[in-house]
Design a protein around this nucleic acid. Structure first.
Lengths: 332, 332
DNA sequence: CTGAAAGCGCTAACAA
DNA sequence: TTGTTAGCGCTTTCAG
């Protein structure tokens, strides 16, 4: 592959001039620049980012580490991060922690070793990777789940209020035994939602606010299915359920189908996260919509700010989720 | 950040020894190695991959460029690539071309500039990025859509046969006016499926095999929705449809719901790609299942082989898709 | 088995 | 405005 000196030689200038031309420095004679670019195209030259970054001590790649790329919520977040990063000249690499702290650590190490400019992280367990990053002074912004203490940039969604609102809605529709089903790797996000669920029960004066909290048996819809089968087989099964993510919701719906239970009429269902398929169900799925893409772009924005100005105080952006009521949570 | 010389100094050895220790070279006195590692942990040293890669002229990062990260099919492929790559010590960066040749080129350039070890590419248009990569002798394997000529490693699915089988099944169920609806960025994959669809019509002696080919108006379910609205409003609307991907299927289902049409009974539906939500529909969605994750791991395997042995002849792996019949394509 | 030294391709002072 | 030069942090001959 052609190097900067090949280009310099062919254009009859020094490597410094080539470098300046390629970096758009003002101080380059247009005629020379022209020659440089001609030589470069003739040689099909591509600057070697490795060398450049080594010299500059800075890269322009951002990492986004999420617990599950197959969760549409996170892919939407990824799009948001991309939107913002690309237009600022950064590229984004998407990494999958699988909800496993070890894998998270591994990717954090990769980011560190590659000297990436910063990372957007949706942490698996409290602060495993975040602290590592912060110790090494690598800019990081936390998305979605939050170690409550850390002075770290964050963008999150007020899931507690949203869960409360959803539960209140279910109560208002006349459902009485409401369960909340969470996925297996309950981060603080899931926790928040459970809190909101309990808030609603307490406020309504129904019991001590303990509510019926369930956790899926394993990853994805199948884990949720098993849990749902179990609680639907109970003597006094719930008559409504709040699912904390899409996969969980699908498990619940499957379990209901097995017993011939219809959403809305028999069991009220509200789920976090909206997917295009929610509307083709009959009845359509009531959802709590999180502004996923926006979360991503805000996070990237915060990260870019911190990269530019490492000492600025930590900031937290809290976005609202909105309840969209459809048939699955209406009795009628 | 601590560098190799900091570690060398602290351990009282040369940088060469540190390097050797970290790279697990046999020829290092255990006692020295011990000292090196102690010093390294004390300093919290992380090797700088930039420097290492610059020196070695080789990275251990793979790029995976797909047209749409929000399509579950591609995230599944990504998991497959990851499975294989991670266990071989490579990391994977996921890039989104959005079906746009320009974005694809941009990411190909990033891969080139970063001197990535290789790329798995699901091309948007015929060969835009592939040729660029091949000219620069960067290992590449094409997934899913294939410029038929190029001598390039590929892993694909026999979509033509699968589409033919699906269409034949629809015919056998008694549907007579079958449409095939494709997404907006029809790669060769969509093309194949349309071909298979036509094969089936021709074989069955129904018309000239031209069939009813439709293309979605735009990206995602909404684009498909508009197209589906149009053909359902036809004088002689189709009585079955083969959708070439999930998003398209959702658009069709939505359009059907608007007109009160029930899948199976009124309009037979088969879609490419299986998602967990297909089973919670009533009737459940008949699908053509592609071994997405497998595709990814095979592709990564091929890529690794080519990296190891650049001159080996190009290989093509063709995987089968399987038809899973559920209620949406059964009249009864 | 270990160290000295060269150099990967690029950028940024510093001179001219 | 341009060239010269000294590294960025690491690996890898080549001697010892």
């Amino acid at each position: 592959m052609a190097t900067i000196s090949d280009v310099a030689f062919r254009a009859g200038v020094s490597t410094a001039t080539v470098s300046r031309a390629f970096n758009g420095k003002s101080t380059v004679d247009p005629a020379l620049a022209e020659r440089v670019f001609r030589a470069a195209t003739e040689l099909d030259y591509r600057p070697n980012s490795l060398a450049r970054n080594l010299r500059r001590q800075a890269t322009t790649v951002l990492a986004l580490i999420v617990p599950d790329v197959e969760n549409p919520y996170f892919t939407a977040v990824a799009r948001g991060v991309e939107d913002c990063a690309l237009s600022a000249g950064y590229s984004v690499v998407l990494c999958n922690s699988d909800g496993d702290p070890d894998k998270e650590r591994r990717y954090v190490d990769v980011a560190l070793q590659e000297r990436m400019a910063g990372v957007v992280l949706s942490p698996t367990a409290a602060g495993v990777g975040v602290t590592a990053l912060r110790e090494r002074r690598t800019p990081v912004v936390v998305v979605d789940r939050m170690p409550p203490d850390a002075a770290v940039d964050q963008v999150s969604v007020d899931g507690r209020t949203a869960a409360c609102e959803a539960t209140t809605h279910l109560l208002a529709e006349g459902y009485r035994r409401i369960a909340c089903l969470a996925g297996p790797n309950g981060g603080t996000a899931a926790h928040d939602r459970l809190d909101g669920f309990r808030d609603a029960l307490r406020t309504s004066g129904r019991g001590d606010g303990g509510g019926l909290g369930w956790q899926a048996d394993g990853h994805g819809a199948s884990g949720a299915l098993q849990a749902a089968r179990r609680f639907l087989a109970d003597d006094e099964p719930p008559d409504a359920v709040l699912a904390t993510d899409s996969a969980t919701a699908i498990g619940v719906l499957e379990a209901m189908a097995e017993r011939g239970l219809l959403a809305g009429r028999d069991v009220g269902v509200v789920a976090f996260d909206d997917g295009p398929w929610g509307r083709v169900l009959d009845p359509a799925l009531s959802v709590v919509v999180q502004p996923a893409r926006r979360i991503g772009s805000e996070a990237a924005g915060l990260l870019l700010q911190r990269i530019a100005e490492p000492e600025r105080p930590a900031e937290r952006i809290v976005l609202d989720a909105t309840l969209t009521v459809r048939g699955s949570s209406r009795r009628g």
